[in-house]
Amino acid sequence: MHEMGITAEVLSAVNDAAVKAGAVRVNLVRLTIGGLTAIMPDALQFAWEAMTPGTLSEGAVLEVREVGARSRCLECATEWEHDQYDRLCPSCGSFACEVLAGNELRIDDVDVDLPETT
C-alpha cells in the first residue's frame, strides 16, 4: 500500500502549484499511470479522498489515465503491446527490448479556481 506515499507526493505538488498560481480551490487533477507500475488506481482514489480534506484540493476530482505497456525490440525494431509478464520480442524472441510506455507515474495538469475579481 505505497499509494499513500504516492498520493502525498501528488498532493504536495498540486497544492504548491495552486498556491503559486494564487488559486482558491483545486477542481481537477489529471495523472497518467503506466500499466507496468505497481500502482493501483483504486487505492490512489481512496488515499486521495482520505488525504485532501482541509487542503486546497478538498473535493477535487482525481482523474487517472491508465497507459498500457508497449516496447520496441532493439534487434529487429518490432513494436508491440504487452502485459506485465511477457516482455520478450514476439517476432525474434530477443529480450533486448526498450520499454516505450508503461512506466509512467506523472502529474499531467490541474484545474484550479482563481479568486473572483470585481
Partner: peptide, 14 residues
C-alpha cells in the same frame, strides 16, 4: 484555470 505540471510524481525522490 489549467496549470500544466507535466512532472513525474516521484520527482523529489528521483
Amino acid at each position: 484555470m489549467e496549470i500544466d505540471l507535466s512532472r513525474p510524481i516521484l520527482a523529489r525522490n528521483d
